[in-house]
C-alpha cells in the first residue's frame, strides 16, 4: 500500500508510525533502524550516505512526541555502554498506557470537562484540549450539568508562561522585581519551584541559590522579561505547591484589618462576602488580607464607603491613595501633570 510510496509522507503519519514502531519493539530500535525502516523516514534514508537532516528531524520528532506525554525512552545496548550510535529507542507499554484500574464515572467526566474549560484561553489551553481528547478516547460520556458553567482563568501576567516553561525544565531564571515601597527594581536569580494562585493572584515560589532560602514573588511585580541563566537545578522531590499555598495562607491569616463600612453600600455587601470576614459587635468588619499595598488599592476604590480603622499602615496607605487620585483629577492640573 503506502509502503512503497515515494510521495511526501504527512508529518502526522511519520509521528504516528514512529510511535507505533517504538511501542511494538521490546528491545528498542537503533537510530539507524528507525531512519531506514520507519514510514516517513525510510523514504528519505540514504543507505551509506549522509543522513544528517533526517537525524535532526528524528531529534525534533522525539521532542514533539515526548511533549504529548508519550514516554519515549533511550536505552543503552547491552555490552556497549556509552556507544551513542547503538543507543536504542522504545516506548515501554506500561509507562505509555493508562493503568487499567483508572476509570472515570460520568460525574467525574463532567467535572474534568469543566476543569479543562477553565483554561480555554492562554497558556494551558492546548494541554487541556488534549486532555479532553484523551478522555473522549476512553469512550467517556459526561452528564450534562444542570446549570451551564463558563469558568475561565485568564493569566494576565506576562511572566507566567516563561516561568512555567522554566519550572518544567528546572531552569534557573532571572528577572527584575519591584518590591512595594522600593524605588528601584532589583534583579533576582532564583530556581522556580511552583506557580500558585492565591486570592486571585499568581505567585512564584522559588529557591534563592545564594541563600538557600525559599521566597515568594508576586507575578505582577515582575517588571522585566524573565530569562533563563542556562543553569539548572535538581528537581524537588516533594510537591511544592502545598508548601507555597500554606505559606501564603499563613500570611493572609496573620494580616487583619478593621474597617467601618457604610451600611447597605457596595463596600458593605462585597467586603462582607470576602472569605474570612467577621462582623464585630459594633458593625465593624474584620478582614484578612495578603498584601497591604494591593488591599489598599482595592479599598481606595470604595471611596467614602469605607474607613480603615486599623492597622495604621493600611489606614495611611488608603488615605494617601485617595489624596493622590483626588489631586490628579482636580481641575488645577487638567490632565497634564501627574506628580
Amino acid at each position: 500500500m503506502s509502503a512503497s510510496s515515494t510521495q511526501k509522507v504527512p508529518v502526522e503519519e511519520r509521528l504516528f508510525s514512529l510511535v507505533l514502531a517504538l511501542l511494538a519493539t521490546e528491545t528498542g530500535l537503533t537510530k539507524n533502524e528507525v531512519l531506514s525502516t520507519v514510514q516517513g523516514y525510510r523514504q528519505r534514508f540514504r543507505a551509506g550516505g549522509d543522513n544528517a537532516n533526517l537525524e535532526r528531524q528524528f531529534e525534533r520528532d522525539k521532542d514533539d512526541i515526548r511533549d504529548l506525554g508519550v514516554p519515549l525512552e533511550t536505552v543503552e545496548s547491552p555490552g556497549q555502554p556509552g556507544n551513542n550510535q547503538n543507543l536504542r529507542y522504545r516506548i515501554p507499554r506500561g509507562a505509555y498506557e493508562l493503568p487499567s484500574d483508572i476509570t472515570f464515572s460520568a460525574e467525574e467526566t463532567t467535572l474534568l470537562n469543566l476543569a479543562a474549560m477553565v483554561w480555554r484561553e492562554g497558556s494551558l489551553s492546548g494541554e487541556s484540549r488534549r486532555a479532553v481528547m484523551k478522555l473522549k478516547g476512553l469512550g467517556l460520556v459526561s452528564d450534562e450539568p444542570v446549570l451551564g458553567y463558563a469558568p475561565r482563568l485568564r493569566v494576565r501576567d506576562a511572566a507566567f508562561e516563561p516561568l512555567r516553561a522554566a519550572l518544567e525544565r528546572n531552569a534557573v531564571v532571572r528577572f527584575a522585581y519591584l518590591k512595594p515601597g522600593e524605588e528601584q527594581a532589583r534583579v533576582r536569580t532564583v530556581a522556580p519551584l511552583a506557580l500558585v494562585q492565591h486570592q486571585g493572584r499568581w505567585h512564584l515560589h522559588a529557591l534563592e541559590p545564594d541563600t538557600q532560602r525559599t521566597k515568594t514573588f508576586l507575578l505582577r511585580r515582575i517588571v522585566s522579561q524573565v530569562t533563563t541563566t542556562g543553569a539548572t537545578f535538581p528537581a524537588p522531590l516533594v510537591d511544592q505547591t502545598k508548601a507555597a499555598l500554606s505559606e501564603l495562607e499563613q500570611v493572609w491569616e496573620s494580616h487583619t484589618a478593621e474597617i467601618e463600612v457604610v451600611p447597605d453600600s457596595d463596600a458593605a455587601t462585597r467586603l462582607h462576602k470576602r472569605r474570612g470576614t467577621e462582623t464585630l459587635a459594633n458593625g465593624v468588619l474584620r478582614l484578612h488580607y495578603s498584601d497591604a499595598n494591593i488591599f489598599a488599592d482595592e479599598l481606595a476604590g470604595y471611596g467614602p464607603e469605607v474607613l480603615v480603622l486599623s492597622p495604621p499602615v493600611l489606614r495611611a496607605a488608603v488615605h494617601t491613595r485617595l489624596l493622590r487620585t483626588a489631586a490628579e483629577h482636580s481641575d488645577a492640573d487638567e490632565g497634564a501633570d501627574r506628580g
Binding site: 509507562a95 493508562l98 460525574e107 494551558l124 494541554e127 487541556s128 486532555a131
Partner: peptide, 30 residues
C-alpha cells in the same frame, strides 16, 4: 497492531486538569 490501550495524560495535561478542579472548588458539584 501495536496499540492495546489508551495513552496516559502528560504531566502538563494532568496539572491543567488538577488546577482547573482546584479553581472550581466553590461549585456545588465539587
Amino acid at each position: 497492531v501495536a496499540i492495546d490501550d489508551a495513552p496516559r495524560f502528560s504531566g502538563r495535561e494532568a496539572a491543567a486538569l488538577i488546577a482547573g478542579l482546584q479553581y472550581l472548588s466553590a461549585l456545588p458539584e465539587n
